[in-house]
């Protein structure tokens, strides 16, 4: 029994960051966040005997996290993948002539905390699935194949969502700097 508990602790320590990233990106600051994380680990331990070593254990736990969050979000029916129309039209509103490369470089002088806050604001405009994909790919440095395993989305869809999410975030970043530059 002690061995089981020790193994369970190791499993949690190894996967908690990835689980937290998925839960936070999928649900934001939802009050049910803690319950969701507990639910994810409850499912993990319940279904652990069914794990067939077809992928990394962390990928399997991330898969459980993603589907649990998705089921949770479906109850509230938010837009999971649709980007709001005003965001799609944002590029047309920004003139890059107004933004100099120096203005962007000045952004690097901001503190990490300030930059994190800007990113949070930019991220808030993205639907949960896009936010999660961006984090898994760029922050957690997972491969497209691993993201495909976790989300169950086809490879082409993952690539296309990542492309659109990056584009929207970049446009919003430029918009942010164009406002500050003016």
């Amino acid at each position: 029994m002690d061995g089981d508990r020790h193994a369970a602790t190791l499993l949690i320590r190894h996967t908690e960051k990835l689980v937290a990233q998925i839960v936070f990106k999928m649900t934001g600051n939802h009050p049910d966040r803690k319950d969701l994380i507990q639910d994810i680990y409850l499912k993990t331990f319940r279904y652990l005997p069914r794990f067939r070593f077809q992928c990394k254990l962390s990928t399997w736990v991330a898969q459980i996290s993603y589907t649990t969050c998705l089921d949770h979000l479906k109850k509230y029916r938010p837009e999971l993948i649709a980007i709001p129309a005003d965001d799609e039209s944002l590029p047309g509103n920004i003139s890059t002539a107004k933004i100099s490369r120096e203005a962007l470089d000045a952004g690097e002088l901001l503190s990490v905390k300030e930059r994190s806050e800007i990113l949070e604001r930019l991220n808030a405009a993205l639907p949960p699935v896009y936010r999660t994909l961006i984090t898994l790919f760029h922050k957690e440095e997972l491969s497209i194949e691993e993201i495909t395993d976790i989300t169950g989305l086809p490879t082409g869809t993952v690539k296309s969502y990542l492309f659109r999410a990056r584009k929207v975030l970049k446009e919003r970043l430029l918009y942010q700097y164009s406002k500050e530059d003016i």
Binding site: A20, V112, R115, L119, E120, H138
Partner: peptide, 10 residues
């Protein structure tokens, strides 16, 4: 910015 963003804590 994505890379240096803090990982949320459980």
């Amino acid at each position: 910015q994505i890379q240096e963003a803090e990982t949320p804590l459980v």
